[in-house]
Simulated assay, not measured.
Amino acid sequence: MCETHDHQHFEATGKYPEFEECVKFHGHSCPGLATGYRAALAAMQALGVARPYDEELVTVAETDACGLDAIQLVTGCTAGKGNLIINDYGKHAFSFYAREKGKGVRILIKNRDMPGKAELDGLRKKVFGGSATETEQKRFYELMAAATDALLLIPQDELLTVVEIAYNPPQKARIFATVTCPDCGEPVADGKMRTVDGKTVCIPCSLASRQ
C-alpha cells in the first residue's frame, strides 16, 4: 500500500487493456500470456469489478509463469503494491479477491490438447536447447502464434474453470519503518530484520552469521 494513498473505489468504465498492451508489457506474445489474460478478464467479470486504484483487488497466483504479466496489467495487482501474492506450486491457477465486494473466485487453466501440441513441445526443446535449425525455429514460432490466437478465441468454459471461493484474502500490505543494520550499515525495513544471538540484523547478515 502506498503511504500517499487516498481511498478510491473501482473505476466504473468496465474497460480492460487489450491483449496487445499485455504483449508490449511482457515483451512477446505467447500461449502463457494469453491464458493469463483470459483468466484476468474472467476474474474481473465474475467479480463485477474494473481495474482498481490500489489494493481493492488481490491476486494469489499458484505459478510464476508468463501469464502473471497479463494479470498484473489487467487487474492492477502487483508485487510492488502488495496485492499480488505468488505461491509457486507450478499450477496455472489464480485466486482473486474483491475486498469491497467481499467475494472471491479461483480460476484454473484447463489441461487440454491443442492442435500441434506434440510438435510444439518437441521443437521447444530444440529451440531453447540451441539445436534447432532456422526452419525449425520458424515453425516453432508459427505454432506458438497459432496456439496463442486459439487461446484468445476459445470459449471460456473450454479453457477455464471458474469457481467462487470463500472470501479469505491475504492481509493488506504493511508499511515498514526504515532502520539501519548494525552489521552491514545498510538501510532495511524494520519488519524484515532478524534476531541472531541476541543481535537484530538484516536477513543477508543473519544468513552470513550462520555460515
Rank of each mutant, 00 (worst) to 15 (best):
L143C: 04
E18R: 09
V201D: 05
T178Y: 09
L84C: 04
P169D: 15
T35G: 04
I154C: 04
D113M: 13
L68G: 02
A98D: 10
E21P: 05
K138M: 07
L57T: 13
G102C: 11
K125C: 00
D149H: 10
N87G: 01
T195P: 08
G102K: 11
A173H: 15
T35H: 11
S29M: 04
S29N: 01
E158A: 07
M44G: 00
R99M: 14
T178S: 13
A34L: 02
D64Y: 12
M114P: 02
T148F: 00
A93K: 10
S29H: 06
T195S: 02
C22L: 07
L68K: 05
F25V: 05
A147M: 11
T161V: 15
A93T: 14
Y37E: 00
F19G: 00
A50H: 04
G80S: 12
F140L: 02
E62G: 02
G198V: 09
I175E: 09
L123S: 00
C181E: 06
R38D: 00
T75Q: 09
G102V: 10
M1W: 13
H26R: 07
K24L: 06
S95E: 14
E164D: 14
G129F: 06
G27T: 06
V162W: 10
V162M: 05
Q137S: 10
H5C: 14
C205K: 01
R174F: 08
H7E: 14
Y141E: 11
V163T: 13
K91G: 00
P115M: 07
V74H: 01
I175N: 13
G116H: 05
H9G: 09
K192N: 12
F25W: 09
M114N: 10
P182G: 03
G185W: 03
Q72E: 11
F19W: 03
A189C: 03
C2Y: 13
